[in-house]
Every structure is written in C-alpha cells, then in structure tokens.
Design a binder for these strands. Structure first.
Length: 733
RNA sequence: GGGCGAUUAGCUCAGUUGGCUAGAGCAACCCGUUUACACCGGGUAGGUCAGGGGUUCGAGUCCCUUAUCGCCCACCA
C-alpha cells in the first residue's frame, strides 16, 4: 500500500498530477482511444461542444458548474464505450471584449481612435490571448476531458472561412440584405446592437401633455418632447369618435424653431384610453412609430438626432444641442407659448445597451440584416416533415424542428419561451460599427459590390468597415469546429449533428436559437438532438453573483480550498435542469469530507486484502455476499437508467449515499465481524466482494469525482480485465 | 400588459409518470476514542409539504383559486 494512504486525502497533491496523466495519455481524443483499442472504430458517437467562454476575463462559478455537468456527460459516455468528443474553444465576443479593452484604455486616458484600427486590434488581441490562456488553465483545473487537439476560436482562420462561406450563401439566397431601417443605436458604444442586446431599465420619467400649436386640434403626450421636431404625423385610433373628423388633415407648424408638417392618420396600434388617445408619430426615432410609418407609406421620416446624440436638421433653436438639453429647451418653449397642459412623473422602461450601459437612441441607418421570413430552398431530407427543395423560411424551420421534437429542450418549459421568441422575431441586425470581430466579407468599388470568401484580386476594392454580430460566428459553432465548410471533413461526417448542447438558459435566444437557424439553413440538419439548460449559480443567500455586490466567487479559490472533486459534486447534487442553485461553502466542504471517506474506505480495503488476487470473476461467493452483489447490480442498473435520462443531480446523491451509508456503514462494518469470526470461505468471499465493490464504486463515481477515483484506481491491484486508466474503463453492469 | 418558475425540517434543497410511515446535506441535542476514517460511528429531536377549495380508494405530486418572492418577454406614447 502506498504511503500516502496513511494520511488524509490531499486533493492539492493529487489533482494536477492526475490531470497530466490523462492529458499525456491522449485519451481525451477519441482517435487515440480507437488507436489504443479502447473504443471500437464503429462505436456509437457522442459529441458536444463546450459553449465557448468569452475571452473577456476569467471563468466564474457558472462556467465551473457548466464544465462539471458537461464533463460528467463526456466521461460517462466515454465509459459507455462510445466514440466521445467534447470540443473546446473560446469566443472572441466582439462587443463584450472590445468594451472591456476600451475601459482599460480609458484608464490610460486613451481612446481607440487614438490608436487606430490596427493598433487597437493589437491591444485587443493581446488581451484576448491572456484571457484565453487563463480560461484554458481553469478548464484543465476543473478536470475537463476536452480534446485540446481540436481547440477552436470563433475568430481564427478556419472559423473566418466558415463565417464568410455562410455569409455569402445567405447573401446569394437573398436572406442577407442591406437596408436603411430604424436600428438600436448605442450612442455611448457608437454601434448598432440587436434587439436581444437591449436591457430594459425601469426609471422615472416626466410625461408632458401639450399641443404642437395653439390652433392644432389634438393634444399629445410624450416623455421625449425634443423628438417632436421629428414628428410627421399624429395617429389616432380609427374608431375614436373624438378625432375621426380630423383624419387626413395636414397642419404646417413652427415647433420650437423648426418647421414641421403633421398629418393626422388612423392606426389600430393607438390605444384610445392611454393619455389623450393620440400619438405623435416620430418615425425616425421610435421603433413603434417607424412601424406606423411603414403601414402608412405617405408618412415621411425625418431624422433629427444624429449618432452622437445631438439634434440636427431642426431649426436654429435646437440644432446642435445634446438631447437632454434640447428636452429642457422644448419644455421651456412650450411653457412660454402656453401650450403645455400637463406634466406628470411616470414609471418608464428605458432601453439600454447590454455592454456599454448607454441609452439606446433609435434612429434610421443603413445596415446589414438577416431576413428570417424569406423563403429559401431547403437543402436536405434530414428534417422530418421538410423535403429537399421545399421552399421554407428560417422562422418556419426553427419552429418546426423543436415542435416536432427533432430537437428536445430540457426542461420542457423553455420550448414555450423559444417559440414565443421566434414568433416575434424581427429582422436580425448583424452589422456592428466596432473593430473587433469578423469584418463583413463585402467589398465595394464605386457602385460595384462583391461578396465572397476572399478579397477580390484587383485593386481599389474596399472592404465594408463593419464587423459581424458575435452571435453570427457562434451560430456556426457545432459545425465550424468540425471542419465545415470542407465537405470531406471526417470530423464533420462522424460527429455532426452533435448529441447534446448543454448551456445556460440566459443564452437560449442569443445562441441556441441562432445555432438552430444557421444549421438548418446551411446544412439542412439540426445542430444537436437535445438542449440541456442548466440554471444560474447564485451565492449562498440566493443572490446573483455580480461585481457590484462583491459576491463573486472565483472557482479556483474553491478548488484550492476543497479540491475540484468536492466542488464538482457540490455543483451537481440537486442541480436539476433549469433551476438556479445557491452555492454554499458548507456544501462543498461536505463533499470534501466525502472524498476523504472514500480514501479511508480504500485504506481499509487495501489493508484487509493484501494477499488477495485482484480478479474477482468466477469466485464462489457466500450467500450473503451474493445478495450484496445482486443489490449492487440493481443499484447500478437504477442509476444507469437515470444517467441516460440526464438526471445527474439525483445519481450523484445516490452514489454518495450508497458509498457512505450502505457500503461503508453496513457492508464494511459487517466485514470486520466476518474477518474476526467468519470461516475461511466467508473471509475470502468477503475480501473479493470488497475489491469488486470498490472498483465498481470508483467507476460509477468517476464522472462526478474524476480525480480521487483515478488516484485510487492507480493504486489498486489490477487484474487482466482492468484497464490502466480509470477514465477509459467501461461503465459497470 | 403577456408568459414562466418557486413556496417541503432552523438553513440549503431532493422528492420523474399520484401509493410516503415525506427524505438528504448542514446546523442542534445525547452517547461513543472498539486500529479504515473524529474530515468518524451510533442515536434523538425537528414538517397540518405557503393558505383555501376540488378530483380520487388515495395528493407534496393532478385541477382551480389566493398570497408572497423571483425570472423572462413586450413599441403603451
């Protein structure tokens, strides 16, 4: 018996060493498993991508729990004998990373424009590289059995080809188009963002009720008086008797120094009972009003706010003013002109940008869009219910594959959320006015336009300056990591579609939906069969972990303190799909005790079975022991079923319970009596039983607590039936 | 405004298709140092399963309703 068993279990002295053993074995890579004869060449496959962490910093506890669950899936399936591939990678995260670096530059009193595009990108790349290295080492500390030989980055060369290929195909099919439409403009971040990157924040706002002019027949209400110089209509409900007589009339007015022309129109969108029942329509600076203008094509669009949040094109008084200043100025003017009728404080949801925190200023702009409603020719016969060549829209396919259960989302309730999102999906704005990301693969030369995977050879072609929404490249992730667009890629043929996608429910729309969109369109197939959504990790009081609360826990600190195995168990036990869990130090501590318990169990067994042969097959077991073996088999059968149903949160607890309270408290305790008073046959039988049991326990516990189980396995006497590395063992029956 | 979730022992939570005499970990209390383990063992106490109503032979589990907390979505100016 190795001397280390004379002391308590020491995770610190064990985990890095075991990590190296696994890595050097090469067995994270399914090809090496096959070469070594440990996996059959024609075995069933299990494949999964690691949701690529953003290179914006370090991993948090949420990542740690994600890695724990996914590694359990991976190790379990590997032990089932499947060709098992878990692909690592990181995400460039465009806006998120760029804003992070801009914030760092701010401290140096620098702006990105001071550096210029090239130098700025150099800074971002340095930052991203550092962050990447930290993330990778954290993944390894967690025991993640990721195949590092296949590591990918959303912004590397191979992924660039995938992005450009996808873009070109969508462009050629007319699904990607350039259009002048109203967008969500982030004044602070100086870029457009998509609808999903908006965070609504409730705030107090002043709502003013007034008339444009004393001879204007209808009063309107607004919280944004400054935008009223951009009004081109007043909309009333078609059935509103108060205003019907005015519909169709046009009024030319001088409003706060600006000449405006207002047509009174009817639109069903207007709520008769809200405010005055009449809505001042500002098509250029309100998304809802833009829609009204689209329904009423004679309504003009007048842009009065520019990209810097300043008033433009609106007369001498306001032009050049900042928005907030202009608001005060208009109110002042209204008062002076005696037009203001009412002013009250109301609660209002204001749109802010997820990353910069700046207020969103809707304004019209030329941008690239993806049309999810336009029909295209479907590419394959792989989706039940859609035939090759059939004309379908992305929206339809996205709904179809989940409705007809070709993709299952767990827990099920998220399917409803998913459907609701798709049904209300607007065109997806994919261009960003930032520098870090995939530059749009479009080149211009005068009026000519070229879209392709490479720049045109001749001179004078200038590439579009915008970059793509980061989710465009992550949408391709399940297949861009497997060699697509190379149609001969062996990985793609073998491992796509992936078996499962495990991720947080906060990125259901951002990522999961976009992967389904991209894959069904480009490949004509699903990206994964099952979506498993884990919950958020909160602190011990159930609060979200955030910088402002100062309650962020670094998983590496927890690992230092309790060991990775204990942390993994704490994150898995009781953590069912979709539910948030509170992470308590006490819980992790409990599982570090469990690791020690297992260690002591091993010590006892090794001491008692010194001279026993390690082959436990074909033994004449006593009746008592046969009974124990049968119960153990029943137990393994039971948890195997639950493993297949992805119920790790139950299985982990059951193994804990079995190991401690059945195996240690009952079976081992009674063994002492047998070794003292039993017959020779009974003693021998019991020794074999203990060896057999500990091996089985190590195997079933291995996906959950890989380090300690491997460490013990390495010290156990092996028989010819045992494999050298527990990670490569087969799941017991 | 729409949708979803949670409410089970002092604390954190399990409890899948209705069969439970309702479980686990931590905390508490009592006993125990018999060589695997005091990071331990044996034991005790603690719950009208948020409230109310219903379906059923039977409900923590299904239905309705109320309350509280939380989350997501939404163009109410």
């Amino acid at each position: 018996m190795n001397e280390k068993f004379l002391e308590s279990y020491n995770a610190k002295n064990t985990e890095d060493r075991i990590s190296l053993l696994w890595e050097n074995s090469g067995f994270y890579n399914p090809d090496d498993m096959i070469k070594a004869g440990l996996t059959k060449n024609d075995a069933e496959t299990f494949s999964m991508v690691l949701p690529p962490p953003n290179v914006t910093g370090t991993l948090h506890t949420g990542h740690a729990s994600m890695i724990a669950i996914e590694d359990i899936m991976t190790r379990y399936n590997r032990m089932l004998g499947k060709k098992t591939l878990w692909i690592p990678g990181t995400d460039h995260a465009a806006i998120a990373t760029q804003s992070k670096v801009e914030k760092i530059l701010e401290k140096e009193k620098l702006r990105k424009t001071d550096l210029g595009r090239e130098n700025f990108l150099k800074r971002v790349n340095e930052f991203a590289q550092k962050s990447h290295d930290t993330i990778i080492s954290q993944c390894k500390k967690m025991g993640a059995s990721l195949d590092w030989s296949r590591e990918a980055f959303t912004l590397d060369k191979k992924r660039e080809l995938a992005v450009r290929t996808a873009f070109k195909q969508m462009y050629d099919d007319g699904l990607i188009y350039k259009a002048h439409r109203i967008v969500n403009w982030d004044v602070k971040g100086q870029t457009v963002i998509s609808d999903d990157e908006i965070i609504h924040v409730e705030r107090d706002a002043e709502m003013f009720t007034f008339k444009y002019a004393s001879d204007f027949p209808i009063s309107i209400s607004t919280t944004r008086p400054e935008t009223k110089v951009g009004d081109t209509a007043v909309a009333v409900h078609p059935d509103d008797e108060r205003y019907q007589k005015y519909i169709g009339e046009i009024y030319d007015i001088n409003f706060c120094g600006s000449n405006i022309s207002i047509e009174i129109i009817a639109d069903y969108h207007v709520d008769k009972d809200f405010g005055t029942g009449a809505l001042g329509v500002t098509p250029a600076h309100s998304i809802a009003d833009w829609d009204i203008a689209e329904r009423n094509p004679n309504i003009k669009v007048r842009k009065v706010i520019d990209e810097y949040g300043k008033m433009i094109n609106c007369g001498d008084i306001l032009t050049g003013m900042k928005i907030t200043k202009a608001r005060e100025r208009v109110v002042e003017w209204l008062k002076k002109e005696n037009l203001l009728e009412k002013s009250e404080t109301i609660k209002q949801n204001i749109s802010t940008a997820e990353r910069s925190g700046g207020i969103i200023e809707p304004l019209p702009k030329m941008q690239w869009w993806i049309d999810t409603e336009k029909k295209f020719e479907f590419k394959s016969d792989k989706i039940n219910g859609i035939k090759k060549g059939e004309m379908v829209s992305m929206k339809e396919v996205m709904l179809h594959v989940v409705r007809n259960n070709q993709i299952n989302i767990l827990p099920n309730r998220f399917e409803k959320v998913y459907f609701n999102w798709i049904e209300n999906l607007r065109p997806w704005n994919i261009s960003r006015q930032i520098w870090y990301g995939h530059q749009i693969p479009v080149w211009y030369k005068g009026d000519e336009i070229y879209v392709g995977t490479e720049a045109p050879k001749e001179d004078e072609w200038v590439q579009d300056e915008d970059t793509l929404d980061t989710w465009f490249s992550s949408g391709l992730w399940t297949f861009s990591t497997l060699g697509w667009p190379d149609k001969d890629s062996q990985d793609f043929k073998t491992y796509h579609p992936t078996t499962i996608l495990e991720t947080g429910h906060d990125i259901l729309f951002f990522w999961v939906a976009r992967m389904i969109l991209m894959t069904t369109y480009l490949i004509g197939d699903i990206p994964f069969k099952t979506v498993y959504m884990h919950g958020l990790i909160r602190d011990s009081k159930g609060r979200k972990m955030s910088k402002s609360l100062g309650n962020i826990i670094n998983p590496v600190d927890l690992i230092e303190k309790y060991g990775t195995d204990a942390l993994r168990m704490a994150m898995v036990v009781g953590n069912g799909p979709g539910n948030d869990i509170n992470l308590d130090d006490k819980k992790i501590k409990a599982y570090s005790k469990f690791a020690n318990k297992l260690w002591n169990i091993t010590r006892f067994i090794l001491t008692e079975t010194k001279e026993t042969n390690s082959n436990t097959e074909n033994i004449e077991y006593s009746n008592i022991d046969l009974n124990i073996i049968n119960n153990q088999k029943k137990f393994i059968k039971e948890i195997t079923l639950e493993m297949n149903e992805l119920k790790y949160y139950i299985v982990s607890e059951k193994i804990y319970h079995y190991t401690w309270h059945i195996f240690a408290d009952e079976i081992i305790e009674k063994s002492k009596d047998i070794f003292e008073n039993g017959s020779e046959e009974e003693k021998l039988s019991r020794k074999y039983l203990l060896i057999r049991s500990i091996k089985n326990i190590l195997k079933i516990l291995h996906p959950f607590m890989p380090f300690i189980t491997e460490e013990i396995w390495q010290e156990l006497p092996k028989s010819e039936n045992d494999r050298d590395i527990l990670m490569t063992e087969l799941w017991p029956e």
